[in-house]
């Protein structure tokens, strides 16, 4: 897979340094230190409420953090959301796919994909449309371009969401439980599209419960518990020979069925 591309000495595309986040009294992220290399596929696992979604949502500023420092492709995010300009730049360079797809129901599939390039980048409509059709083709839904997203199946909607994120030509893709809201028979088609993206060398941070997929695609697996990175390493090591007791008990619960 993409493990051969894992760079060793390149400048990391994401650097998180002592990131701490509080929700009121709740300490959601504790001293997160994390570097992601270009082309790396990182899968983040952990129980619900462990902070794994919050962690990736901090990378594109959908969540603020209170202490520490995040750098994304040279743009610095400051605590408490005090970095409006950098945030805008980061968001155009970081794509995100959500659990609930979050397609825009009042726009056609095609307009969902062309909205950001036209409004943010000022791409001429014709060019944005051609690009959108190419991306929809790539995720296997070219023939649905003129439909409303509400007419599509969950799996199709999530592939549109992927195409929509890719249209901004992101340097990094975030996936927040992309298959958790899908019927079982549709999970495969979304994972296939993500697999292909990984194969093409996209840098990806993926929060998922799909352990088989993680083992196959990830360069690195990170286990989070209680807002802390407990263990990380190549999937072979984390899944087959976890060092930490918490990781062992989590995996024994998840992998049993």
């Amino acid at each position: 897979m993409s493990s051969s591309q894992t760079p060793t000495s390149e400048t990391p595309i994401v650097r998180m340094d002592k990131v701490n986040k509080h929700f009121g009294d709740l300490h959601v992220l504790k001293d997160i230190d994390l570097e992601i290399a270009p082309g790396e596929v990182v899968v983040i696992i952990g129980a619900s409420g462990s902070g794994k979604s919050t962690l990736i949502r901090c990378v594109n500023g959908l969540e603020e953090f209170q202490y520490g420092h995040i750098e994304v492709d040279g743009n610095e995010l400051l605590p408490n959301g005090k970095s409006a300009k950098a945030l805008q730049t980061i968001r155009t360079e970081v794509g995100m796919v959500f659990q609930q797809f979050n397609l825009f129901p009042h726009l056609s599939v095609l307009d969902n994909v062309t909205l950001a390039p036209i409004k943010v980048r000022g791409t001429p409509r014709q060019q944005a449309v051609a690009n959108a059709r190419r991306l929809l083709e790539r995720v296997g839904i070219a023939d649905q371009a003129d439909k409303s997203p509400t007419q599509l199946s969950g799996g199709q909607q999530q592939r549109v969401a992927l195409a929509r994120a890719l249209t901004m030509e992101p340097r990094l893709m975030l996936f927040d439980e992309p298959t958790s809201a899908l019927d079982p028979e549709m999970i495969g088609e979304v994972l296939d599209a993500m697999r292909e993206l990984a194969r093409d060398g996209m840098t990806m941070m993926i929060v998922t419960h799909e352990m088989g997929f993680a083992r196959e695609v990830a360069d690195r697996v990170i286990y989070i518990h209680g807002g802390q990175i407990v263990e990380q390493g190549p999937p072979g090591v984390v899944f087959d020979n976890p060092q930490h007791e918490r990781t062992q008990s989590f995996l024994s619960r998840v992998l049993k069925h």
């Binding site: 500023g61 959908l62 994120a165």
Partner: peptide
Amino acid sequence: EAGLSLGL
């Protein structure tokens, strides 16, 4: 959030 994540 989807809009913001696209850079709008």
